[in-house]
């Protein structure tokens, strides 16, 4: 598979064309948080419904490239309905995937476990070979973390 085909896997294109959990939630009770990538103009707005230590619902709006939008969509599907500690663990694992170099990934003894835990999200690993696109992939995740921190602080 070429780097390009590895980057734009079918699952990514699918989430780009048909994003999951698209829309808004009433605020309050949901918490709204916005993320921007000033370099390329990508935007993501997340609506987080957190109660009893669970991310009960998540919706999002925004626009951007296939990587940023599919990453948001994949993320929403992966974290919706999860306990907050699992959500944080998923964020950590995903960010590790994005920061890990190829070699580190190959040598990392937990890689198999990590990829399995990431499920469909593992499709985004091709992004690592395109350093300038990593910020596209991580935009939604950084925004989610910020939103959860804001919820925790309020």
């Amino acid at each position: 598979m070429s780097n390009l085909e590895n980057l734009y896997r079918e699952i990514i294109l699918d989430h780009y064309r048909s994003p999951r959990n698209r829309g808004e939630l009433a605020t309050p009770p949901a918490h709204k948080v916005e993320g921007f990538n000033p370099l390329c103009g990508d935007e993501v707005t997340l609506y987080l419904d957190v109660h009893d230590g669970v991310l009960a619902d998540i919706k999002m709006t925004g626009h951007g490239c296939s990587i940023s939008q599919s990453s948001s969509s994949l993320m929403s599907a992966a974290v919706k309905g999860k306990a907050l500690e699992d959500v944080h663990a998923t964020i950590d694992t995903f960010k590790e995937l994005m920061t890990g170099h190829e070699v580190a990934l190959e040598e990392h003894h937990d890689v198999e476990v990590d990829l399995r835990r990431l499920g469909e999200l593992a499709a985004l690993q091709g992004v690592v070979k395109f350093p300038v696109r990593i910020k596209c992939a991580t935009l939604a995740w950084n925004t989610l973390r910020q939103g959860l921190e804001e919820v925790a602080a309020s």
């Binding site: 980057l7 390329c40 951007g64 490239c65 395109f130 696109r133």
Partner: peptide, 13 residues
Amino acid sequence: GVHPHDVAQVLDE
């Protein structure tokens, strides 16, 4: 239907 970043990425290929 194709974001400029994706256009540029494919063009780079």
